[in-house]
Simulated scan of single mutants.
Amino acid sequence: MKKFLLFLAGLIALAVLLANLGPMILLGVSVWLLYIVFKQFMKSDSTAGKIGWVVVGLITLSIAVSNIYAVIGVAAAYALYWIFKNWTSKKEDIQPTRSEDPFTNFEHQWAELNK
């Protein structure tokens, strides 16, 4: 049942990721352009050049803000990673339950000593 629920959650996360792939790309490009605009703003010596870079930066910032819901796509990508990690993980050694039988406890302790 756990594998089926993980599979179902993975399908939903994949659909959300694919639906938000375009905005995610536009958000990445606009953040990169904001970085370029900032570097050009810092290099500019004239006041008119700085004003021009501020205008270009504000336009690019508005594009970035309009695609901010692409963060949902990033969360879906993380959910896919988490689902894949849990799907392929194997259970660690499960400690046997201790009983009141002294022979069972002795065998368990003997097995630990022989490791």
Rank of each mutant, 00 (worst) to 15 (best):
E107R: 06
L80Y: 05
G22W: 11
W110L: 14
T60Y: 00
A111F: 07
K43I: 02
V16S: 11
F84H: 09
E100W: 07
E100G: 09
H108M: 12
A15R: 07
S89W: 02
I63V: 15
F4W: 13
A79W: 14
V37Q: 05
L8P: 00
A9P: 00
E112W: 00
S44M: 12
I63R: 01
K90D: 04
V31H: 09
V16F: 14
G73Q: 06
V71H: 04
V65D: 00
V74E: 03
K85C: 03
V56I: 10
G22P: 01
V31E: 12
E92H: 06
V37D: 11
V16Y: 06
S99E: 14
S62H: 05
E107C: 01
L113I: 05
T104L: 07
K39C: 02
I63Q: 01
V31Y: 04
R98I: 13
K91G: 04
P23W: 10
F4H: 07
E107K: 06
A9Y: 04
T60I: 00
Q40W: 05
L58W: 00
K50E: 01
I59P: 00
K115H: 13
L34M: 15
L27K: 15
G22Y: 14
Y35A: 08
L21K: 02
K91D: 05
F106C: 02
M24Q: 14
L5I: 09
G28H: 13
E107S: 03
F106A: 05
K39G: 01
F4S: 15
K91T: 08
D45T: 12
F38R: 05
V55S: 03
G52C: 06
I36T: 09
P23L: 08
P96D: 11
D45E: 13
F103D: 15
Y69H: 11
T47Y: 02
L80D: 01
L6W: 08
E92K: 11
V71E: 02
L8K: 11
L8R: 08
A64Y: 00
Q95R: 07
G10K: 02
N67Y: 06
S99N: 11
T97Y: 03
Y35T: 07
W53Q: 06
D45G: 13
A9T: 03
W82V: 14
K2E: 14
T60P: 00
A70G: 09
A76Y: 09
L26C: 03
S62E: 05
W32Q: 15
A19L: 10
V65G: 00
R98E: 12
S62D: 10
Q109I: 00
W87N: 09
